[in-house]
């Protein structure tokens, strides 16, 4: 059975790019436009969460903390999408419970390699 990835980003173009790459690689993708939307969609089974940091309503860090505090997704891997200019955010993300990160801009192969690293 293919694994399901929840892709969270407020930019529709990034979501589209990510979804296309993941679907082509055989993953099932659920899209969410911000943290709140993501939390709502986490009610169905998800194997990995891929999230942007800066988003309206609930941002990436709060989303990460909320997921770690939940019972269902405490151990679900979370990948953060960050920009190179904010190494401090990386540490913040780790402290919040993120599994790993991916620096924007990235190539599709990088995205898949990183996902394989945490999903196996």
């Amino acid at each position: 059975m293919s694994k399901t990835i929840l892709a969270v980003d407020d930019s529709a173009s990034i979501r589209q790019l990510v979804s296309h790459t993941l679907r082509t690689a055989g993953f099932t993708v659920i899209e969410a436009c911000d943290g709140q939307d993501a939390l709502d969609k986490l009610k169905s089974p998800v194997n990995l969460v891929l999230t942007d940091l800066n988003m309206p309503r609930v941002d990436g860090l709060s989303l990460t903390r909320a997921i770690r505090a939940s019972t269902d997704h405490r151990y679900t891997p979370i990948l953060l999408l960050t920009t190179e200019s904010e190494p401090a955010r990386k540490l913040e993300g780790k402290a919040a419970g993120a599994t790993g990160w991916l620096v924007k801009p990235f190539q599709p192969e990088q995205l898949l390699a990183t996902i394989r690293k945490v999903l196996g």
């Binding site: 770690r68 405490r74 151990y75 679900t76 891997p77 979370i78 780790k94 419970g97 993120a98 599994t99 790993g100 394989r116 690293k117 945490v118 999903l119 196996g120």
Partner: peptide, 8 residues
Amino acid sequence: ERGANLLP
């Protein structure tokens, strides 16, 4: 607790 998996 950060969702990491070592096997991969």
